[in-house]
Amino acid sequence: MTARLVEKEGFAALVLRLRAEGISDIDLLTAVEQTPRSLFVPPQFSDDAYSTRTIPIECGSFLEGVDLAVRILHLLKVKPGQRVLEVGTGSGFTAAVIGRIAERVLTIDRYKTLTANAQRRMDQLGLRSIVVRQADGSNGLQGEGTFDRILVTAAFNSMPRFYADQLVSGGSMIAPLMISEDQCRMVRLTKTGSRFERDELFDVPYLPIVPRLASQL
């Protein structure tokens, strides 16, 4: 079976699972279809690219199952013309999908290896609207203005208000919070003026955020 056929069948099975969950956003699904998932997983895990399993990648990080990734993006509700910040680049898959919808994406990670690999994939796919940067996301990101959407994929102990303050009015942020030592839950904040509406979503497997840039990797 060719790699293209594996991609096509994997995506078709994903769409069926997502539709069973009530996810049928054409723009989002088109962006996912145009972003070959196998490009973002280590070669030895290519058969699992469209599975629900968590896949290990470089620097002790991981790639969440594709169903979870798309489910989160569905809840983020990215629209054309928006500026999006992602904290935790990982493989770069979610940034690549977002970059096919939004006007501009800034994605950051503490690991140089991850950001370099993600940049290589963006170049390979011809995605010019995405800025990949090595940065410490544990204390916010200054000097970048405001964003319509913010997605965080490393867990904080409490909602990172310094990121919430970078949202435009009407903007929203999705971030994982450590509810206990071994439980992490995705939470969404929606900003209206100076007020925030909070929705608790579902448990996720993300790891606690680590401060400072990685010195070796």
Rank of each mutant, 00 (worst) to 15 (best):
R4Y: 06
V6H: 13
K8I: 13
F11P: 12
A12E: 15
L14Q: 02
V15F: 07
R19M: 11
A20V: 00
E21Y: 15
G22T: 11
I26W: 05
D27A: 15
L28F: 05
L29W: 02
E33S: 11
Q34M: 13
T35S: 10
P36W: 08
V41S: 09
P43Y: 08
Q44A: 08
Y50I: 01
I55V: 15
P56I: 02
E58S: 09
F62N: 11
G65C: 07
L68D: 13
A69P: 03
A69S: 10
A69L: 00
V70I: 14
L75H: 14
G81N: 10
G81L: 11
Q82N: 01
R83P: 05
R83G: 05
L85D: 03
L85Y: 03
E86M: 13
E86H: 09
V87D: 12
T89H: 08
S91Y: 05
S91N: 07
T94E: 02
A95F: 02
R100Q: 05
I101W: 04
E103N: 12
L106C: 10
Y111I: 02
K112Y: 05
T113F: 10
A116P: 02
A116R: 08
A118I: 02
M122Q: 00
Q124C: 08
L127I: 15
S129W: 02
I130Y: 01
V132N: 14
A135M: 04
N139C: 14
N139L: 12
G140S: 00
L141V: 11
G145A: 06
R149K: 06
V152H: 15
T153V: 00
T153C: 04
A154C: 15
A155L: 00
F156S: 09
P160T: 10
P160A: 09
F162Q: 12
A164E: 09
V168Y: 01
G170T: 14
S172G: 06
M178A: 12
S180W: 04
S180C: 04
D182G: 08
Q183K: 11
C184P: 06
C184A: 08
R185F: 09
E197M: 09
R198E: 08
L201K: 14
L207I: 15
L213N: 07
Q216E: 11
